[in-house]
Design a protein around this nucleic acid. Sequence first.
DNA 1: TATGAATGAGACTTCATTCAT
DNA 2: GATGAATGAAGTCTCATTCAT
Lengths: 193, 193, 193, 193
Amino acid sequence: MPRPSRWDDVVSAAARVFSEKGFGGASLEDVANEVGMLKGSLYNYIKSKEDLLFAIVRPNAEELLDRTRKLKEADLPASEKLRQIAEIHFEIIDRQLPYVTVYVQEIAGKGLSPEWTAMDREYLTLVADVIAEGIEEGDFAESTDARMSARALIGALNWATRWYQPGGPAQARAVAGQLAGIFLGGLLARRRG
Amino acid sequence: MPRPSRWDDVVSAAARVFSEKGFGGASLEDVANEVGMLKGSLYNYIKSKEDLLFAIVRPNAEELLDRTRKLKEADLPASEKLRQIAEIHFEIIDRQLPYVTVYVQEIAGKGLSPEWTAMDREYLTLVADVIAEGIEEGDFAESTDARMSARALIGALNWATRWYQPGGPAQARAVAGQLAGIFLGGLLARRRG
Amino acid sequence: MPRPSRWDDVVSAAARVFSEKGFGGASLEDVANEVGMLKGSLYNYIKSKEDLLFAIVRPNAEELLDRTRKLKEADLPASEKLRQIAEIHFEIIDRQLPYVTVYVQEIAGKGLSPEWTAMDREYLTLVADVIAEGIEEGDFAESTDARMSARALIGALNWATRWYQPGGPAQARAVAGQLAGIFLGGLLARRRG
Amino acid sequence: MPRPSRWDDVVSAAARVFSEKGFGGASLEDVANEVGMLKGSLYNYIKSKEDLLFAIVRPNAEELLDRTRKLKEADLPASEKLRQIAEIHFEIIDRQLPYVTVYVQEIAGKGLSPEWTAMDREYLTLVADVIAEGIEEGDFAESTDARMSARALIGALNWATRWYQPGGPAQARAVAGQLAGIFLGGLLARRRG
DNA sequence: TATGAATGAGACTTCATTCAT
DNA sequence: GATGAATGAAGTCTCATTCAT
């Protein structure tokens, strides 16, 4: 799919603009200004505003899904997989905050279209499966509700788009580690554990 | 302040409409239709569309803050307080889902105005303080980052607006209990703990 | 024509409001606020917004016309009549500035309705007749164009609504005297005249 | 600054419409109809309705000011300058009646913004200065109040927007001459003067 | 590819007016 | 007489989209 030369400019400008003003609050003129062209010219690149929204979000959503799919198949203990789920999620947030913000704000969990519903569901299932593995393997407590735990984790990760400020891979990994730690170990002190 | 008679109708209709279509995506005509009046008539009740947004959200936000403030002062162990934080949050989500959805989607963590920034910050601080108490009292692990843990918990709770389906107080309490359990005990099995 | 008790309040409030914001720029709610009642209540006094405009303006326009009619019939030299025309005009401006402002701004010379066109024309004719008298009597220069001179004088007087600040009868008389002096004697110095 | 192609159409249509119906009484739809486009399309040319008002009026106001400024500096007797002030004013009225009507009706002497207040004041001062010159040079009577005379003259000239019907430069000059004559010589016959 | 202009629908908001109480 | 509420039309302005150049 050979894209016109300034395709990337358009998409990244739109990501910035949509993440700042929201999809509904931003106009295509805002986007065009950010790229440095007139709004009419945008239609050389897109077919509609919604198109642009999906174009922003799809590559990152697919990357997240791909990497998580592979991780699930990896030969690692569930707790390590969970840690890496957080790391992948945060690595993308750190590197692509505007894109992810748009995804979280406008699409995730909203059932906009079958395609996105399916993506949401797959990601939820992947995370829940990892947790279920952990339970089966005896690493995670038997009483754990895998699906709800997955939702809690995903919520905590997505919510980071409202407070996290990108600081590079190392920082992203650190924060992800802390969050994973909370979900794995809980807040309670382990007395003589 | 005595409100005109259909004030409550207006607010609840707006909450439903905004939570379904989003604040930006919903028109005042949508709201008016839901109440059963003409869009011009809405202006007997509100001064602007934004006004209506805040009117929807403020009472619930204040209830959450009030109850959490009181809880913080209560004479209970931190772990019990944390559990009740989740219960309060979920009780309001269960009872007022459209309102909370609007709040989470349109306001929380967005820094729209000093007033809302302050509310967000106070809630975060309240939750973080409870966690800090738990650390001081030795109930929670020393290594815990109170502020980040609070953010994780709040994110997990707010994210529920995208998946939770109200089912009455008992269900709300059950779900809250499970989430609190995850944050307190973690996913890991406690061997001989 | 027995008027309801607060008729005068309504009219004077409207005069103030219309003269500040203009007829088009002012809303009946503005007027109602100024009186201290609700806008619906105004309709106990008026039949329409335009009604109110005319009610504001008519008594003063009639007073001006009446007094000028009588003056024209008086047994005085034309130059003295001209002086008194200015005095009457300014006395009303001084005493009723908001009303006159509304008249000048919204009605005078605009041909809104036959009634007002007739009033405008009568006033113009009265002033022009006085000037014509002066020409006939040899007091005013033969070359004078009575109608145009009348228009110049009326313009200068009406324009005062944009700069004059009421200061009581004495001041009004003084200013009127100066303006009349300009129209009578002109600016040129009378060398050995 | 290269203007879009139909900029002049828009401005002249707006001038016509505003001068007929008043700024407040005219809608942008009226203007758009007059140009032959849809009301939304106007916003390719203007940023707001007020913008359009100022765009109509500014060039003419500036022309009047510029020419009057230069005139003041000219090496002519004050009486001749005064005559030319009237001629300039009337030449613009004759050529641009709708524009000037809008200015007189909506802006002059109303203190809408510092910019217009300053323009009004400068014009008043220019005229008053010319009169003051005449007094100093002994051409005008010592008793003359320069500022008030200027106001009278400006009022008489502006008022012409309510009665003058354009008839070309020659007629404009003739009318201006008569008005100037009134202000210079006064109405009184000069007996053996 | 980019531009400038136009379109047309629809948004928020105002407001004169009416009316039951 | 006054009130609170509703009406419905109209107004200003925005914006996704189209299209000739």
